[in-house]
């Protein structure tokens, strides 16, 4: 109903027949078109780029050895998907990511809770963790390979390593940022320690923890790409390295696109989580 109305008024506006009593209405419609126009414009550049790329490739100006046409990449995607090898490799990569993420997030969260609550745990743990954090975790890769070889353990370990720190840091930060007055209120209301954590500490720390989750998703993905590029027998990264030997740039580009898409999907999941869990928060939830 309101949709119909909107269409009708925007048509009237397009036809440039503003009536006096519809001036304010027209202004809001114009604002909406402005926003839609901007959205369109923001998509224009990438689409044009893609078309130019396609045309250059079709015209033979771009060697397929350097960059295959987008349409060729798409066809390769369908072909590989039909043979199931693509889905298989994708599944393996996702399993590694999820496994590593779960392990790393659990450790980071547990340590974060411990350090956030206990001064003793903070004194005992925090400095060491901060020192390890100063190492770019990918620099540990050669050492990890010496320890664990190039099997699944090494890949999951690397992902977990990349995930642990952002979760740890944001969990401790979130707990420290909780208003002590609310903790005091919890005590006044007679909450036990467990209820205090459940009703006040965790919800208060949640925005920070979810920020950590978003960072962690990005580092998990980066860790996976690196781990799979070095000595993998399966997975998206293996697909890329295998394709490299045969100069199959279409497959390589396809793997890059898949990495990107999964990165985008992970971020979308994190955002949805924030919107759902932080409905109360003026900066996240749309709830009124």
């Amino acid at each position: 109903m309101s949709n119909l109305e909107q269409t009708a008024s925007s048509v009237a506006f397009d036809a440039a027949q503003p009536s006096d009593n519809a001036v304010s209405r027209a202004r809001t419609v114009q604002f909406e078109i402005g926003r839609r126009g901007l959205l369109l414009l923001s998509w224009l550049a990438p689409v044009v780029l893609l078309i130019v790329w396609e045309l250059l490739a079709q015209a033979g100006w771009l060697s397929p050895q350097v960059l295959p046409a987008p349409s060729k990449v798409l066809r390769t995607a369908f072909k590989l998907a039909a043979s199931e090898s693509l889905l298989n490799d994708l599944g393996i990569s996702l399993l590694r990511a999820i496994g590593g993420f779960t392990i790393g997030a659990s450790i980071g969260f547990a340590l974060g809770i411990l350090v956030g609550f206990s001064r003793i745990a903070e004194a005992a743990i925090d400095r060491s963790v901060q020192m390890i954090r100063a190492i770019p975790f990918l620099a540990l890769l050669p050492l990890v390979i010496v320890w664990l070889g190039v099997g699944e353990a090494e890949k999951i370990f690397l992902v977990a390593l990349g995930v642990t720190f952002p979760i740890y840091i944001n969990t401790t930060l979130g707990i420290r940022q909780i208003d002590p007055k609310l903790i005091e209120l919890g005590r006044v209301q007679g909450l036990g320690t467990l209820d205090l954590i459940r009703r006040i500490v965790l919800p208060g720390a949640l925005p920070s923890i979810l920020t950590g989750v978003r960072y962690a998703l990005a580092t998990a993905w980066l860790a996976l790409v690196v781990a799979e590029t070095i000595g993998a027998q399966s997975g998206i990264g293996f697909l890329a390295m295998d394709a490299r030997e045969f100069l199959r740039t279409d497959v390589i580009v396809l793997t890059i696109v898949i990495y990107a898409l999964i990165g985008v999907a992970a971020d979308a999941i994190a955002r949805t989580l924030e919107r759902r869990l932080l409905a109360w928060h003026p900066n996240y939830g749309g709830a009124r």
């Binding site: 007055k181 006040i200 919800p203 109360w280």
Partner: peptide
């Protein structure tokens, strides 16, 4: 028994709805 307190600031938990705030504890 444990007394109830109202502070100068309301100290409502922003992440809980009103009835859950009232039911705290």
């Amino acid at each position: 028994r444990r007394p109830a307190v109202v502070f100068q600031e309301h100290r409502l938990l922003p992440w809980d709805t009103l009835w859950r705030n009232v039911a705290l504890g």
